[in-house]
Design a binder for these strands. Structure first.
Lengths: 239, 239
DNA sequence: AAGCCGCAAGAGCGGTGCTCTCGTTTCGGT
DNA sequence: ACCGAAACGAGAGCACCGCTCTTGCGGCTT
């Protein structure tokens, strides 16, 4: 993570040096993000970022202690963006089925426009890089948007899940259960939400990584079909 | 791909030189596979393979023209193994629901035991490495096993899919449609099979990459739940 | 027997992450 | 106003990577 000093100074830069540090840190992050979008996480090189900024490669280490630390900063940035995309696509005034589809499409659009960032979030872990445990506040915004839609539908009496196998409560983490039980979800509803989230991320990944290349002809149409399918499975009637 | 000469000689090694070449090629592949299992695809290094075999790094290039070519060989090997795992887990005499679960579990077990190979097949593409288009014969064995089970169930009159959104036929590739229509599947049944295959691979990836870390408590149980869910969605009644 | 050709090895190129040192600049406290 | 400490940028260097080119050895074929 960024050093304590840095996050501290972010809020109140007092000296010229601190302002310069914040500025340069931001520039490094911007350049890194640009390069991430071009060559992906494993192609991202500290030396290349340094070259772009006209500084020595060793100087970068004054700002990010390692390549992993830089990746983590990009990870947080990406989680925030995909959370924004999900929440921004949600119109709480619309009907549940429309909200569900809108959020799915919003997440897909962000992912298509930021495929390397998507890979950093949900793809194969970058070898040698152990992603830190991020807070639900950061990583959970996207899945929680789906939960919120479902909860609203349930509150409105519009939830009508089809018959499905029951899920053993012990299969799911207690934290997860209490989190969603706080939204009045049952174990099975929780399990179905996990599957929906898994489905959303999975089908985008398949489209992005080309595994659906000779399988689907119209990826957008197949994605919408998938979204409606997941909505129906979670009890949100497709209007 | 491997050179024509090599594949040619595989069947009829005539000279000592050719035998030695085949033998050494096999040893390189074995060492590479071992290292793949340890450090993953992007960590796999030709120089390290050469070191393990006690030869100069440049000598490897006599056998594999590039690192990508070596990766492709490992890709084919892995597809074959996961196809074996799927087909091997299938007992055509058993009931459809049991066959379905057995195949899912077989694929999961292979994946857990070969996580880096799984990542090579279904994970984020290795940057700079463009996976070749593999034949259905190689890459399609695993998903086709699921299709076969479903087809057998349908033939026996045991297929009973729940109501679900319909899929626009134009969303799916014509080749895919004719392939599965050859097994008497409708468009919707085909779409559901694609989703099932996607789900199987996706949920394993999530378990493998740690994205379900604080979500599921008993991964095997949640996986079985997922398998039963997918079976039901595809019309295979859970016994 | 002669020559061709497959082969392994070595050196080398440009790239990577990361470390250490060195001289400079800036900041904070006296 | 000054001085020590801390921060800083640059450079050299280490061990690694994929890949190429040259060189020389030794089996294989004609």
């Amino acid at each position: 993570m960024l050093s304590f000093r840095y996050t501290e100074a972010m809020n109140a830069p007092r000296t010229a040096r601190e302002r310069a540090r914040i500025e340069l840190t931001r520039e490094i992050l911007q350049a890194a993000r640009r390069q991430l979008g071009e060559v992906g996480a494993v192609g991202l090189s500290l030396r290349s970022v340094a070259r772009e900024l006209g500084m020595a490669s060793s100087a970068i280490y004054r700002y990010f202690a390692s390549r992993d630390e830089l990746l983590t900063a990009l990870l947080v940035e990406s989680y925030t963006e995909i959370g924004d995309a999900a929440e921004g696509a949600d119109d709480p005034a619309a009907r549940p089925a429309e909200r569900w589809l809108a959020v799915w499409r919003g997440v897909r659009e962000w992912s298509l426009a930021n495929r390397h960032e998507y890979a950093l979030l949900f793809g194969t872990p970058v070898p040698g890089y152990a992603a830190p445990h991020l807070t639900t506040q950061i990583a959970g915004r996207m899945p929680l948007t789906l939960a919120r839609i479902t909860a609203d539908a349930k509150r409105a009496g519009l939830l009508d899940p089809p018959p499905a196998p029951v899920c053993d409560p012990s299969a799911i983490t207690p934290e997860m259960l209490v989190l969603l039980e706080g939204m009045a979800f049952s174990v099975d509803e929780t399990a179905r939400l996990i599957l929906a989230w898994n489905r959303l991320v999975g089908v985008i990944g398949y489209e992005l990584h080309g595994h659906l290349e000779n399988v689907t002809a119209d990826d957008a149409a197949f994605f919408d079909y998938t979204a409606r399918t997941a909505a129906a499975f979670n009890g949100i009637a497709t209007g």
